[in-house]
Nucleic acid binder design. Structure first.
Lengths: 243, 243
DNA sequence: CGCCAAAACGAACGTTCGTGCTATATTGCG
DNA sequence: CGCAATATAGCACGAACGTTCGTTTTGGCG
């Protein structure tokens, strides 16, 4: 399992001076918390050191000393966002048993994390990817790697569902992962740009439709029922679902 | 048809002084051409006046006078990008007869315009939307309106295909438009971030699969054939397709 | 030709950016 | 207590940003 793991290494260097670092590490964490919030809404470039320092009522230089460069701050912010994503999306979904249940759970909880605004600006990585896909550098590489990880998690879950005999094995895992990911990002886009909450229902409907068609007899009961397609809005398909 | 229309109004003001403005309008157009190129790759905020002036070997102030403010420049750039999009995507697709043929053509030529890099940074509006979805203002509103236009064009094409009896009328046009758009943006994302050319084939496959399942007997022949799914890469499904 | 408006220019404004240097609190350890 | 390391603050820098201003170049028209 590559995704569910801690990444922000708490380096200890000297064992004796460990306790001294406690306070510094705590403020560093506080900085990153605010940084993720700002960056998710205004972009990793809009995340400015002065702005961040003002938000936390501390001096630019004091804050700056924690990172040494803007790029390092951005990288740390990306890493912090990944930690949050793992905690809020991946791990919860991994409580479901492997197979179709977990696959669906990954999709569902992903959409939920956007709707709940775990990140103020929707999907942190969709925003970061769009911002940095044009400029080479460490930040872009890291963001790309993380999104590849996510796609791999989706793909592996598809493969596991197939291995469990819950999903037709004719489907290519990477292809299905691509489609599910695209629907997720489509919902994120519609919600961020248009404030369209209906987009979540649309994405869910498309995912369920796609998955149900590939599900075997074993897998079908693990998926939510189809809405009865036509006009009637069909209230509360999954209990909490709300347009 | 709301989309296929000129938007950049060539105002004439005084008939006598018309000729004088000719040159000014030409450089304005040249500025916007470069502006679209830069903005599509580095964002509408990364589109800096100094950078743009340097690109065109002219002074900041001389360039600035054409627009009066940065926001006005951004708006003009968005409008210019829309003109290009209409010319390169919408109008070509509208040469196909209305119905499934045109709907597919819209999807196909959209993907092609990303692959051909009509805009250096892929889909101009996907980038602009991601950049501005968090900050209110005229630019955000305009970008949102244009993307709504595009979604409406897709939706209307679906409805027309249904009216022609080429597509099952049980599908909700807006839902299908959402899905097709999501797949487009997913392909754009994968190509921009990972340089993954295969993404185009993946998006195309998902679209064809989705559309074929909804197509009636009349509509089916208007769609490209399915790749023979399994392992074998099945060379050149559409002649030009290449991983 | 001279006139005059449009177009382009060059220099400067006030901010804000990221980033250095230096000094001052804070605090566990000897 | 005092030492040494760490954390934060203060200040200044050079560059780039959007913007304004006054001036100079350009080119169609009387």
């Amino acid at each position: 399992m590559t995704i569910p793991g801690k990444s922000s290494g708490a380096r200890a260097e000297r064992a004796s001076a460990g306790a001294r670092r406690a306070h510094g590490e705590r403020t560093r964490q506080a900085i990153l918390e605010a940084a993720v919030d700002i960056a998710s809404a205004e972009g990793l470039e809009g995340l400015t050191i002065g702005r961040l320092a003002a938000e936390l009522s501390m001096s630019k230089s004091g804050l700056f000393a924690h990172f040494g460069s803007k790029e390092e701050l951005q990288l740390a912010t990306v890493e912090a966002a990944r930690d949050i994503f793992v905690r809020e999306v991946v791990l919860p979904a991994f409580e479901a048993p492997k197979g179709v249940a977990r696959l669906w759970c990954l999709c569902d909880v992903w959409l939920e994390h956007v709707r709940r605004e775990v990140f103020r600006g929707g999907c942190f990585f969709a925003a970061a990817a769009a911002e940095f896909d044009g400029r080479p550098g460490a930040v872009r590489d890291r963001v790309a790697a993380i999104m590849k990880e996510w796609l791999a998690v989706l793909g592996r879950s598809v493969a596991e569902a197939q291995a469990e005999g819950q999903l037709d094995s004719s489907a290519e895992p990477a292809q299905l992962a691509f489609e599910l990911n695209a629907l997720e990002m489509g919902a994120n886009w519609a919600y961020q740009l248009h404030g369209d909450r209906q987009a979540f229902a649309r994405a869910r409907a498309a995912m369920v439709e796609r998955l149900r068609r590939l599900a075997t007899e074993d897998g079908l009961p693990l998926l939510p029922p189809l809405k009865q397609s036509k006009a009637r809005p069909s209230r509360a398909a999954r209990g909490k679902a709300r347009t």
